[in-house]
Amino acid sequence: MSVMKKIMIFGAASAIASETAKCFAKEGADLFLVDLNLDRLNTVKNDILVTGGKANIEVMAFDATNFEGHNDLINSAIEKMGGLDALLIAHGTLPSQEKLNQNPKDIVREFNINGLSVISLASFAANYFEEKKSGCIAAISSVAGDRGRQSNYIYGSAKGSISIFMSGLRNRLSKSGVNVLTIKPGFVNTPMTVDMPKNLLYASPQKVGELIFKAMKSGKDIAYTPGFWRLVMFIIRHIPEGIFKKLSL
């Protein structure tokens, strides 16, 4: 268990990440919360303060696809909090595959949000943590990134790029004592999935948020949240391609 007192979170107003933020705040950590919308961030900040965080909470409205601003933003968080122990990158969108099939020009934007912006942010932070020789970089990938399926393979391939990037980063930073955590949530009942019919596989954002908190504290490499998805995806990954391509998934 490592001590994490200064945490920066991207996508902090999301249902999952705001729950993780609550867990850290309850332990007395300072938070630097980033999301698109300042009003939402302030709502989340108040919620965290009421539920038991006595911590200092900074909020910042920022669009993660503003790549030029990545380095400055991370540096200003480090400056504001007097250092950084962990970075959680949790922002993302769930685009409709069907709409992307019709308008392929939107693919660049979705890939920037769900893939490249994460890779860029983690890379800037990596240089800081590598020098510090401790800390944790966590990013939310997805079970959808484990294998391409016709229903959401643009989202899946962007998430998959995160998984592969994080694997490489982990390899690079392991000798520096920096923990690199890939988080792979399954279905979660959040605003992102509001239009989808729910079934027993859906988990609550509270549960997933807490599992991410625990995974970050314990120094895990890859965390499926909840854990049963590890088995589900093991099976899905091992279906021979000849059969898999014929399935309607």
Binding site: T43, N46, V50, T51, P191
Partner: peptide
Amino acid sequence: SGLNKFISFNEETGLLRC
């Protein structure tokens, strides 16, 4: 049901806003 955030709490009086 998705409007589920706390807004403020007064530890002295027990007044909760959510």
